[in-house]
Amino acid sequence: MIEIIELTKKYGKFTALDSLNLQINKGTVFGFVGQNGAGKSTTFSILATLLAPTSGTAFINGYNIQKDTKAVRRQIGYMPDFFGVYDQLKTSEYLHFYGASYGIPYQERQKLIPRLLELVNLSHKKDVYVDLLSRGMKQRLCLARSLIHDPEVLILDEPASGLDPRARVEMREILKELKTMGKTILISSHILPELADMCDSIGIIDHGRLIAQGSVSEIQAMLHQERTIVVKFLGEAKRVISFFEDDPFVSKLTEMEKGSLQFVYRGTEEEQMELLKRAVLQDLQIISFSEEKANLEDVFMEITKGASLS
């Protein structure tokens, strides 16, 4: 579990992090979304005991990041947004080095490292020098490195940045696997749709302040109290369009393609149910009536336009 209390970081007059409060429960995957300079990496660096906060504090599994630094380091696996590797080390040696740095005995590492390499799909590269690996492979190796001491909390700063689409998909699959292993994961990304189907909850940070927190749909509801509905139907479009246009809670109705339309609905869930019921009773030949999943990127762009939600 991660608990952040009034965390503030100032560099002279510039406030990088402004009284951040956050609670992430055990086993949760929390996505941290924000533009460059929003304060994501600063937060992660403080949690990883690499940067001292100006005020406020944080706890990781009950350990204070300022007082119990060694215990915190044992609890976390940290992957920075930018990192280097030791050129002259082989992949397995790289993991051995970090394993030894956490005090894991050699015999134990011998069993552990092949498992980690398998998890990140690098078993075939165990004897290859680290600097010869591709960017995506290095990212995966760094992720394996962050897991070497079996931490309960993972702090992953933009783990998918700079990766090609295939490598992103691979990284996302590994993170899903880690989620099933019950790890508490704090992850940041600019690739917002990547987080949408992976995170239990997201936080939007802007100018050092957390301006929204919740599930993707909660944040969307928070924004507009409105939902985007997609309707697929058979038969004459004119009659269907006319029916929905007559509803006072419907707006921005657009016909997308033949037999499909989309509109924004501002009513309650009960009113939405009634709308669907009436459409069926009117024999409109509805095939499907569904809420479009919130596009996190849209939400992010909307939220970080400047309007504070808190």
């Binding site: 060694k70 044992r74 940290y78 920075p80 280097g84 740095s101 956490y102 760094c142």
Partner: peptide, 12 residues
């Protein structure tokens, strides 16, 4: 080389 940060988060 950006290897120090990672080293400093170990228990060394």
């Amino acid at each position: 080389k950006q290897t120090l940060n990672i080293l400093l988060t170990t228990t060394q």
